[in-house]
Each structure stands twice: as structure tokens, then as C-alpha cells.
């Protein structure tokens, strides 16, 4: 197949998937609006994680901290200030970035397993704070009972309607993903990939590797915070579970499941994760077992993940990052 044809097929495929996503509320059973909302939000979370892991090569085990803080930020602003949602989301992204800047500043100096452990430790601390600081976070109950506002002043979207909220989520995530994609394809993104492969060489090219790692970590924190900000109005609560360390595993699993070497991999991974969880828990308790087997297979035989493997199979050529 020629390159042009391949590209055309890719564009058509992407357009079809997008159209399908937009059409979910009209064509799928009601229940799938909720599934789709969750998939899209967690896809953004997993993609933000993959900027750090798949691109910059740092395995962070504390990503839920930024997601959770984003959720609390939107929930608190909705509860106390009743700002339009878009402003809440901005606050969430800034909160995620700020927390990532602090945690990253202390963590990126370490390599590999120490970095992973430190991000895990900081993630636990953030959970501890959310759990204990009752006057602000309401402890184990989390922040609930907030009313939804308009998306932006005067647009009049009824966000209480799950279909409307889903479309808002989809729109926000598409814009965010486009921005993230731009970052991945930029010169900055290229340097991150170089750092993942050989940080020493990058330093000897004259770049401050720590600063680049910190920048990637902070940007990822912003997008994770945004994902959290979208999730809180959907769940009608921001709870400590959202920043529990076990939640940090989810974007890791989704990214690996979908394929860490591809921009869209984590989104596919999130879809698989949520759909499989829904279907499998429907008839068996063994969801963790199935997930475990699947992950083991991915790591042992399909390192490119589901998306990467499918892509390679479709195009029959070794996949570059796409």
C-alpha cells in the first residue's frame, strides 16, 4: 500500500472513530453514555501519564495525585464559588501543574526505581492530606453536594444531562489531546524521547535534562489535573479514592495495555480497560485475574500494546510513533 493511501485511510479511520464517539448518546444504550464519559476522561489521564512514561521515559507511580487534586479543585470551586465549569477546569489544570512542579522538583533528580518510589511516596502523602484535612477536604466523604454551573457564561448548556456533559467532556478532551499531541510532535517532545533513550547524551548536547524532565512532569500534571476536573462533576464527588496510590496504577496499566509508543495508545488502553471491566465484572468476580493475564500477555508478547499491534498488523510495517 502506498503512503498516501495509508494516510488517507488513517484520516478516514480517525474521522469514523470521532463520529462514533460523538454519536454515542444517540445510537448506544443510555448506560454507555456513562461508560464513554469515563473512557474519554481516563484516556486523557493515561495520555498525560504517557507523556512522562512513554515519551520522557520516567515511570511515575504518583499520577493519581494530580488527577485527584484536579478533581478537588473543580469540586471546591463549584461548591464555594460557583464559577462556570471552564474556569473550574482551568483551576484544576493549574492545581495539577503546581503540585507536579513541587513533586517533580523533588523527584526528577532521581533515576528509575528511585524516581518511581519517590513519586509513589509523594502520592501517598497527598492522599494523607486529603484524608486528614477535614475542614477543607471533608475527609473520607470527599467534596460532594455541589451544583453544576454553566460551561461558560451565557452558553446555557444543561450539564446535568449526561449526554450534554458527555459532549462537553469529549470536546474538552479533544482540544486537550490535540495540544498534548502537538507537544509530543514538537522539538520539545523530540528531546523528551531522546532523554528516554540516553539522558547523558542529551546533557552533553547542552541541555539541562532535569529541567526538561521537570517540564514534562509539570505539563503531564496539568493534563492529569484537567482530567480530574472533568471527572468530579461526572461523579458528583471528589473523594480521596481518586488520589489513592492504587489509582496511580490505572494510567500505567492503560498506557501499557494500549501501547506506550503511540500517542493514541493510552486512549485505546483506557477504552479497553473500562469496557473489559464493565463486561467482565458483569458475569464474574475475576476481573483482576483477566486483567492480570491480559497485561502479562501484553508485556510478554505484544510490547506495542493493543493499539500498536493492531496498527502494525494493519499497515504491515514496523510502527513508528504515530
Amino acid at each position: 500500500m502506498s503512503r498516501v493511501l495509508m494516510r488517507a485511510l488513517g484520516v478516514v479511520g480517525a474521522a469514523a472513530v470521532l463520529a462514533g464517539l460523538v454519536a454515542v448518546p444517540w445510537v448506544a444504550p443510555y448506560f454507555y453514555i456513562f461508560i464513554a464519559t469515563e473512557v474519554v476522561i481516563l484516556g486523557l489521564l493515561a495520555a498525560s501519564f504517557n507523556l512522562v512514561f512513554g515519551y520522557a521515559g520516567m515511570l511515575s507511580f504518583g499520577h493519581a495525585a494530580f488527577y485527584g487534586v484536579g478533581a478537588y479543585a473543580t469540586a471546591l470551586v463549584l461548591l464555594h464559588l460557583q464559577w462556570p465549569l471552564i474556569a473550574c477546569l482551568a483551576v484544576s489544570a493549574v492545581a495539577g501543574a503546581a503540585l507536579a512542579l513541587v513533586i517533580g522538583f523533588l523527584s526528577v533528580r532521581l533515576d528509575e526505581v528511585y524516581f518511581a518510589m519517590l513519586t509513589l511516596a509523594f502520592g501517598m502523602m497527598v492522599f494523607g492530606v486529603a484524608y486528614q484535612w477535614r475542614s477543607v477536604t471533608n475527609g473520607s466523604d470527599g467534596i460532594a453536594g455541589f451544583m453544576l454551573t454553566d460551561f461558560a457564561p451565557g452558553v446555557g448548556w444543561v450539564l446535568d444531562d449526561p449526554a450534554v456533559y458527555y459532549h462537553v467532556v469529549l470536546g474538552v478532551v479533544i482540544v486537550a489531546a490535540a495540544l498534548l499531541y502537538l507537544i509530543c510532535r514538537s522539538s520539545f517532545g523530540q528531546v523528551l524521547r531522546a532523554i528516554a533513550q540516553n539522558p547523558e547524551r542529551v546533557a552533553f548536547c547542552g541541555l539541562n535534562v532535569r529541567a526538561y524532565r521537570l517540564a514534562a512532569f509539570t505539563v503531564a500534571g496539568a493534563f492529569a489535573g484537567l482530567a480530574g476536573g472533568l471527572m468530579a462533576p461526572f461523579l458528583r464527588v471528589a473523594s480521596p479514592e481518586m488520589l489513592h496510590w492504587s489509582m496511580s496504577a490505572e494510567p500505567v496499566l492503560m498506557a501499557i495495555l494500549g501501547g506506550t509508543g503511540y500517542f493514541l495508545g493510552p486512549f485505546v488502553g483506557a477504552a479497553l480497560f473500562v469496557l473489559l471491566e464493565t463486561w467482565i465484572t458483569g458475569f464474574t468476580e475475576a476481573w483482576m485475574l483477566v486483567l492480570g493475564v491480559l497485561l502479562a500477555l501484553m508485556v510478554m508478547f505484544f510490547r506495542r500494546g493493543v493499539f500498536g499491534t493492531a496498527l502494525a498488523w494493519l499497515t504491515r510495517r514496523t510502527g513508528d510513533r504515530s
Binding site: 502537538l182 507537544i183 510532535r185 514538537s186 522539538s187 520539545f188 517532545g189 523530540q190 528531546v191 531522546a194 542529551v202 548536547c205 547542552g206 541541555l207 526538561y212 517540564a215 505539563v219
Partner: peptide, 20 residues
């Protein structure tokens, strides 16, 4: 490989809005 080194020197490396 060479682009990374070149963009490091030219100060392009920090651009996140371009297409490498």
C-alpha cells in the same frame, strides 16, 4: 539523532508548539 543536538544548540529544543 543529529536534529536533537542541533536543536539543543539553536535553542529550538524548548519549543513545544512547533512540529519537529
Amino acid at each position: 539523532n543529529v536534529e536533537v543536538a542541533v536543536s539543543a544548540r539553536r535553542g529550538t529544543a524548548r519549543r513545544w508548539w512547533n512540529i519537529a
